[in-house]
């Protein structure tokens, strides 16, 4: 028995205004089925106002062996954060 179905990653926007969040995957043979399966599996408790489905094969991911090169350099650039800066006493709205 070697059936193969397409795996789709599911992203749900729980409320208008919020970003879509990854919640897991579903199996489906076409995109309509994927959307409906995602609705059945991930929104039974009022958790959704919008669903995106993307074929898992389309997802491009950073590799874990690259994570040091990819992400560590941003760790020592604290000047990108507002807390890095001391403001004069009394200065407002800044």
């Amino acid at each position: 028995m070697t059936e193969k179905t397409t795996v789709w990653e599911v992203f749900i926007q729980s409320k208008n205004g919020l970003a879509h969040k990854h919640v897991g995957n579903v199996h489906a043979t076409d995109k309509i089925m994927a959307l409906e399966n995602a609705r059945e599996l991930y929104t039974r408790r009022n958790e959704g106002s919008c669903i995106w489905v993307v074929k898992s094969s389309e997802i491009v991911s950073s590799e874990s062996e690259d994570s040091e090169a990819f992400f560590d350099p941003s760790n020592d650039k604290m000047y990108r954060h507002p807390t890095f800066y001391t403001m004069p006493d009394g200065a407002k709205h800044i």
Binding site: T5, V26, H27, A28, M33, E36, N37, E40, L41, R44
Partner: peptide, 10 residues
């Protein structure tokens, strides 16, 4: 399929 099982129950 398991997904369809859930759909039918819904």
């Amino acid at each position: 399929t398991l997904e369809e099982d859930i759909a039918l129950s819904n």
